[in-house]
């Protein structure tokens, strides 16, 4: 049974559809990656799951409950967290305050989750009193992921988690994603570093012009000649 299933969604900004019947599903414990050329609707599909893009047709189901076109704060309450691509920390808040914001909807004691995030990313504990805006790109990405973990979600959506990071940091970030997955959190991500992302993912989707083009295990997609020619630089 799928944790999340996106069934034939159409939609976009304004009158023009960017998504033309996208199907995606994520099973419990999986890392799933969406790749594709620019303008294929990768990020848009993810935003549609999170209620940031209007879905005109089709439906989105999470843990057997329809979440199509819910508001973002309602989606958060159902247990999905989203890490946007850019500007994904509150720059004038300290690292710890950023993490606390992730737990905003919780009224119980979240200190165990805070501890868990600090164990996962010890550098954040070190810098917990610093303003998040003063951190390096990689550290900011950790703050953003840590903030998502504060709700103890079953599923995290990552929009290009390695965009704009130095190559050395990219590897570290993929390690971090694996670590989060090791905690039992499913991950759906959009990535530009297709080769590395496919290598670490259980399954992958290739989108073009808002439609599913290929869908297979990460390993098989890496081996697929057509995919390689299209996106992996031969």
């Amino acid at each position: 049974m799928s944790l999340l299933s996106v069934e034939g969604i159409y939609g976009g900004y304004g009158d023009v559809d960017i998504l033309n019947g996208v199907n995606i599903h994520v099973d419990p414990g999986e890392i799933v990656v969406i790749i594709g050329p620019n303008g294929a609707g990768k990020s848009t599909a993810m935003k549609a799951v999170f209620g940031l893009v209007k879905v005109r047709e089709g439906r989105i189901v999470y843990q057997d409950k329809p979440i199509t076109n819910l508001r973002p704060d309602q989606v958060v309450k159902s247990g999905i967290c989203y890490v946007p691509q850019e500007n994904n920390v509150f720059p004038t808040l300290t690292v710890q305050e950023n993490l606390e914001m992730g737990a905003f909807i919780r009224n119980d004691d979240y200190s165990a989750d805070l501890k868990k995030v600090y164990e996962l990313f010890p550098v954040l504990h070190e810098k917990r009193r610093q303003q998040a805006g003063a951190l390096s790109g990689g550290q900011r990405q950790m703050v953003a992921m840590g903030r998502a973990l504060m709700l103890d979600p079953k599923l995290i959506l990552l929009d290009e988690p390695t965009a704009g990071l130095a190559p050395a940091i990219v590897d570290l970030m993929f390690e971090n994603i694996k670590k989060i997955n090791g905690l039992g959190v499913s991950i759906l991500m959009v990535e530009q570093n297709a080769k590395q992302a496919l290598a670490m993912s259980h399954r992958g989707y290739v989108l073009t012009t808002g439609r599913n083009r290929f869908e297979d295990t990460g390993k098989n997609l890496l081996a697929n000649r057509e995919v390689a020619e299209m996106f992996l630089g031969g």
Partner: peptide, 24 residues
Amino acid sequence: TKVGKAMRAMSDNSDLAQVTGIDV
């Protein structure tokens, strides 16, 4: 306070505050 911090967070980036689940 939680509300005070959320006010600062919204002032920083209200879109991010919304996707974080803050009751705007």
